[in-house]
C-alpha cells in the first residue's frame, strides 16, 4: 500500500493529538475533519464493502456516499462527518469481510 499522502496541506496545524487506526498510531490535528486528516496521513482505504469486501475510501466528503465509514466504539460512522479528538480508536469498517476475501 502506498503510504505517501496524495495531498499537500497548505496550512498545517500545530495542535496535534494521537489517534489509532486499526491499532496503528497516527498524529492528527485536533478538531480537524477525520476523513481529511486520515487521507493526509497517507491512508487510502477506510473500509471494505460488506458485499464483496472491496476496499473503499472517501468519495464525496459531504456525508452523502457512506464510503468513508469507519468503526468507532462499535458504531459505524462517517469519517467525513467526524472530528478528530485525542485518543480516538478507529477501526476499518467490515474489516473481517475484507480479510475473508483476501
Amino acid at each position: 500500500m502506498n503510504n505517501a499522502s496524495p495531498f499537500h496541506n497548505i496550512s498545517p496545524s500545530d495542535d496535534l493529538v494521537t489517534v489509532t487506526f486499526d491499532g496503528i498510531e497516527y498524529i492528527l490535528p485536533d478538531g480537524a475533519n477525520l476523513a481529511a486528516s486520515l487521507l493526509e496521513a497517507g491512508l487510502r482505504y477506510f473500509r471494505n464493502t460488506p458485499v464483496s469486501g472491496a476496499p473503499r475510501g472517501p468519495f464525496c466528503m459531504m456525508g452523502a456516499c457512506y464510503d468513508c465509514l469507519v468503526e468507532i466504539d462499535g458504531e459505524t460512522r462517517q469519517a467525513c462527518m467526524t472530528e478528530v479528538t485525542s485518543g480516538l480508536k478507529i477501526e476499518r469498517a467490515h474489516r473481517d469481510k475484507g480479510l475473508e476475501n483476501d
Binding site: 499537500h8 496541506n9 497548505i10 475533519n33 487521507l39 466528503m61 459531504m62
Partner: peptide
C-alpha cells in the same frame, strides 16, 4: 471540500 475544510490540495 478538502481544500476549504482542511487546507488539503490533491497532488
Amino acid at each position: 471540500i478538502l481544500l476549504k475544510q482542511s487546507g488539503l490540495v490533491a497532488e
